[in-house]
Design a protein around this nucleic acid. Sequence first.
DNA 1: TCTGGGGTCCTAGGACCC
DNA 2: TCTGGGGTCCTAGGACCC
Length: 430
Amino acid sequence: MSTPAVFALIDCNNFFVSCERVFRPDLNGKPVVVLSSNDGCAVARSNEAKALGIPMGAPAFKYHQIFNDHKVVQFSANFELYGDMSDRITRLLTAVTPRIEIYSVDESFLDLSQLDITDYAAWATAVRQRIWREVGVPVSIGIAPTKTLAKLASEHAKRVHRLDGVLDLATAPVAERERYLAETPIQEVWGIGRRLAPKLKAENVFTALGLAHMNPRRAQQLMGIHGRRLTSELSGVCCNPLEQAGKPRQTVMHGRMFGEDTNELFVLEGAIAGLAARACLRLRKSGLISRGACLSLSTNRHKPGYQQLSQYITLTTPTADTGVITAKLIEVLGTMHNPRASYHRANVLLYDLQPEDALQADLLGQVDIAGSSLSQARMRALDAINKRYGGRTIRFAAEDLSHAWQPKRQLRSPHYTTDWAELPIAKLQL
DNA sequence: TCTGGGGTCCTAGGACCC
DNA sequence: TCTGGGGTCCTAGGACCC
């Protein structure tokens, strides 16, 4: 018989805000928010900010008054910093066990079933303290026989003060586990969003416990295969295994809302060149090439006449070449561009990806092998130079056609940990 | 005036084949 | 003139996540 599954979810509390506070301890105890690109919405809030009634995704302009009245400290998102802090936590957890799934920038699942742990809660408390000591970010840890339950446990661990950031539902008695399920509103279950929650309420299912006890066939009728799995997972039957790294990614997307709306072709071309350069770089870093690209342009969805246009391109010779892909996208822009529209956002999507060394597999002889090895060499040289001398040392001229589209990030904190020029300065008072 | 970015998976429906 | 069933592949759109 195999050992029963035991998962831990390590979930960083108010992650972006916590990262900012590592370098600004003066902000502890004060309301802090981190804003999305263009300083548009609150994407992270300190507990003090949550207590002021600022919801996730709150548009900054609507909360201006509250921000002012309560001296809420605002930051533009500093993803370089958050990514680096996230890597530090991942390294620490990987040392605990290589059986790790990095679920998002601020959450990881660990498979504990192979580890020799007698007291899960004590183990979790030790991990929590170590992350606090070595990285400076507070985390909550939930432990359970399924990932869905571990997620639920970590939410309670975060909110219930006396739990001190740790909840073990793996060894808890059934009655206790059910009590936590009964206290979890249906819309807070992992996998139940704004569409499914009302559907379930209409069936008199209001809590996680209700969903656990739901007839699996009915759950499947309402929510597809996803629903059947959810009822099992909430009952403690694991149908959602740990997914370790190595799964190939299927798309690379890069998009931005513009700093100001525009209909100028040269501004759009500059934007597309910039977005494509980032997307292609990410593609190359993953060792992939793409057979398809898509350009989307949209107007402001909060204004009347909102429209979103997309155009797909097939690349006969799959590539990760910034120059080739940018040229194709700009060509397509010419056919899409409506001189009367005021564009608010552009997206570049690369899809139909394959490993870069799979090129030889082309049977129809349409692929330009010689051309692509030249292109690969060119991109390697470009990436090597940029890695050594800094991000945009060599770039395509189209990227400099205009910078007017670039989003505002006026409140960004320094890149404390990833840029020598922005290292924090400590002053010693004698 | 001002409302994020980057993903995944599932399903339904159409085209096409035998 | 009538007319089945099963399978695969592809795409668009929906729903979810952080």
